[in-house]
Amino acid sequence: MNDDKSLLKGPQLLQSFEDNWETEMGACILGKGRVVLRGRDLLSELTNLRWAELLVFAVTGEESPKLARLIEAMWVISTSFPDPRLWNNRVAALGGTTRTTASLAINAASVVSEANAYGVRVGKRAVDVLYRFKEKMDSGAKLEDLIRQELKKYKVVSGYGRPLVSKDERVEPLLTFAKSVGCADGPYVKLAFDISNYFENSRYPFQINISALMSALFADQGISAENAYYLVTQTFVAGMFPCYIDAINHKEGTLFPLPASRIKYTGNQSTRDWTY
């Protein structure tokens, strides 16, 4: 697309795009009652899709009821914990207790889910690490060497280890579901558990977490790290609404209140005067 513009640079490039957005992704045809998504007429061809199927089609351009069903199961089993103590959920709950709008609270909480310690940032890296490891192993590299190199460079293997508790209670139910739909026997699921087995027999405290299994299931379906990331960016919201609603239904300001004594000041000077 836009090959004729590929040689343009600077202001000339921008001028070539002014009021000119050529796309195959889609648009609403205003006044004509039509909506086109990836070359398909949404209002006549795609109306029978389930929402997750539409999401898969919108992200990947592929129609895959199987992947859509898998994603729904991931969202149900893996990412919908209605606990206001979880850091992202707590944002939704804090929004409820301060009586902000549901959209503001839920969406703020959602973007907080893009964390280093948990959530969709870890998930994207977990897909990436499986693809990188598999590619190198196919060229003869040994898994234990790759794990050691990854730990040396990044301190973690994304998808292994977990804040607060080490064992991830979600792995087994999602694996059971994946087996029920014939998705648990792929090479990436095997690799994910091979890494898990390495850690179990090592001095490292890392256990497989749900990100690794989700990532392996995505990889076995041929989904890129980028698309896997897109498919889970809103994954936590079903656990966030209960947190927001619960806080709204309690008296305002009552979620985890903190008296002044709950601030532990560790600064150098407790009092001083500002002088020029």
Binding site: M1, L30, R34, G39, R40, D41
Partner: peptide, 20 residues
């Protein structure tokens, strides 16, 4: 609103629409 700016390069055209 950039009314005329979006140019679909793969518009399938009216589908099952008698008035189109």
């Amino acid at each position: 609103f950039f009314h005329g700016a979006v140019k679909l390069t793969n518009d399938p055209g009216p589908v099952n629409k008698a008035d189109e």
